[in-house]
Amino acid sequence: MKTEKFQSPRVLEALLTGPGLIWLLVFFLLPTFNVLLISFRPSTLTGGIGEGWTLETFTQLRNPNYPLIVFRTLWVSAWITALCLLFSIPVAYCLARAPARWKTRLLLLIMVPFLTNFIIRVFAWKVILHPEGWVASAFIAVGWMEAGTQLLYNVHAVVLVSVYTYLPFSLLPVYAAAEKFDFTLLEAAMDLGCKRLEAFLKVFVPGISRGVWTATLLVLIPNLGAYVIPDIIGGHRSMMLGNIIARRLFSDRNLPHAAALSSLLTLLVLVPMVVVIFVRRRREAST
């Protein structure tokens, strides 16, 4: 093999691993620690980072607005994740039972709208939900909505557009698990007297639990750091952690504050993630 040229395979391993790893250490890991450090720095009046060390930023985090925003971030993300799963499981079931030639077509059909630009998709929803748009007009005509009320700029709109954006992220892993599910188990359960829905919930759903967990992570984590959708669709009444970080960075120019909030978000995200990575790596190593 190609290792022969080198004295030891360790040299080749280092040569192959080095460039990418060093890049990520410098531009991913180092900046993350830098953020943590900056959150212990004082802020200057000119919007820079001051000298010395302080715990002031963290005491300011008790500001009455923050717990509300953190709570909203967690709550909205949890809702989005739950709804994504609720839709993904029946669709994955349908796809997994579809004839083989339909499977690839349907999968492609699911992927295509999501290869379009993210910001464009969010904008498209803004047009759809616009007060003069046809959805609002139709709702007013039918009497579901009073004239003058808004479909945009509230938490519900944020949840709707986020579900739209993240549905494929939950659909694909759930489908991958459903593909491997042995559907004769469902028939067996029903032969043994299970009702159809009962069999679906007690046999199918636990059978694809691995996919469901992956889906949960893939939807929950990015939504904890949501910025664009609450910004464009949600307005200031639906601000999430991501929006407050951007505001501290650009509007208030309080960098240590932004850094402290980012560290908080990192913590929120990192704990479940590291656990999953290690479990997976172990599982791969053991098989």
Binding site: G20, N34, R281
Partner: peptide, 25 residues
């Protein structure tokens, strides 16, 4: 190496953006 390659895939983009911005600042 695997952890370093895998993590950016799941970390919210905003954290990558903020941390790089603060590094460059």
């Amino acid at each position: 190496h695997y952890t370093m390659i895998f993590t950016p895939l799941v970390v919210p983009e905003i954290l990558l953006g903020v941390s790089l911005l603060l590094l460059f600042v």
